[in-house]
């Protein structure tokens, strides 16, 4: 009886360790170890297909990847894709949130529609958009020809592929920003608005001087979360173009995937992964910092 109680109190005293233990163990085993292993592999020249044993070459794989024009191009593309997609999503999302931020009949339905792209399978989305973009039978070119514009190749040409892919991302994720902002706007107090109106401020002034500063924390977090996800975009690009034509839509994620699972160059693939990893880690640090400074 008393032993049982003591045992119970042990559990109780160590609840803050015991409760999270399974989850933490899982994450350590499934995430931390693999990441460390990737770091180790990045210092080797291991190639599954060369038949040669793994040898530690220290920074040589890094050197080869950094000197690889394909890597530099993929890095640039990763950023330009993210910038294109997220900037449009932010502006559009803000506009939509401001418009919908009032009570009206069918608001629930409008919100439901906005949820649909967020919960749809990205691979399937990509394929549906490929049907739109099909240069010969696609709706996109039909619209262009009706407007008297020439047909374009959309994802079929190196010049237009990245904006075309960004457009899909914009379609899918603008509603996310809008929904987050809507929730943010709804939680604002109405007082500052009333006093601004009393002072005779214009709608634009109210937005710029009252609304925007108040939703800024929400907006920033949403934008950074979205940017991290955009940097990692994989499914849509892989399903729609596989990084092509040529390498013209190959981002870091796609390149790392090809190096790992098509070329089996595990050493060099790890180098790309380390870069991607650092990139995301830096962005995450920014989030944490931002949250802290905004809370103060």
């Amino acid at each position: 009886m008393s032993a049982g109680k003591q045992k119970g109190s042990f559990v109780e005293r160590h609840l803050h360790i015991l409760f999270p233990l399974p989850a933490v163990t899982f994450v350590v085993v499934m995430m931390l170890f693999p990441v460390l292993y990737t770091f180790f592999l990045s210092f080797t020249n291991w190639n599954l297909t060369s038949g040669m044993p793994l040898t530690v070459v220290f920074l040589r794989s890094y050197q080869r990847i950094i000197q690889e024009p394909r890597f530099v191009a993929a890095l640039g593309r990763t950023f330009s894709f993210t910038l294109m997609a997220v900037s449009v999503e932010t502006v559009l999302g803000m506009i939509i949130a401001l418009i919908l931020n009032r009570e009206f009949k069918g608001k629930g339905l409008a919100k439901l529609v906005m949820l649909l792209p967020l919960v749809s399978t990205p691979v399937a989305i990509g394929i549906v958009w490929n049907l739109f973009y099909d240069p010969t039978i696609g709706l996109a070119n039909f619209v262009l020809t009706r407007l008297g514009l020439p047909r374009i190749a959309w994802v079929g040409s190196a010049k237009t592929v990245l904006p075309s892919l960004a457009l899909v991302d914009i379609w899918q994720w603008t509603p996310m920003i809008a929904l987050i902002l809507l929730a943010g706007l709804a939680s604002l107090s109405t007082e500052p608005y009333e006093s601004a109106r009393v002072d005779g401020a214009s709608e634009w002034q109210i937005f710029w001087h009252v609304t925007l500063p108040m939703v800024m924390p929400t907006l920033l977090t949403a934008v950074i979360l979205r940017s991290i996800d955009a940097l990692k975009t994989f499914d849509i690009i892989y399903a729609m173009t596989g990084g092509g034509p040529g390498y013209s839509s190959e981002t870091l994620n796609i390149m790392a995937f090809k190096y790992s699972f098509e070329y089996f160059r595990m050493g060099q693939a790890s180098v790309i992964l380390v870069f991607l990893f650092i990139l995301v880690l830096l962005m995450s640090l920014v989030i944490m910092r931002l949250r802290k400074s905004l809370e103060l």
């Binding site: 099909d134 240069p135 010969t136 070119n141 047909r151 190749a153 959309w154 994802v155 079929g156 040409s157 190196a158 592929v161 173009t241 092509g244 034509p245 040529g246």
Partner: peptide, 15 residues
Amino acid sequence: PKGVTNMSWENIMPL
């Protein structure tokens, strides 16, 4: 065909 740089046999055959 338009967009041929993104086409393999699986895109050309249906055309």
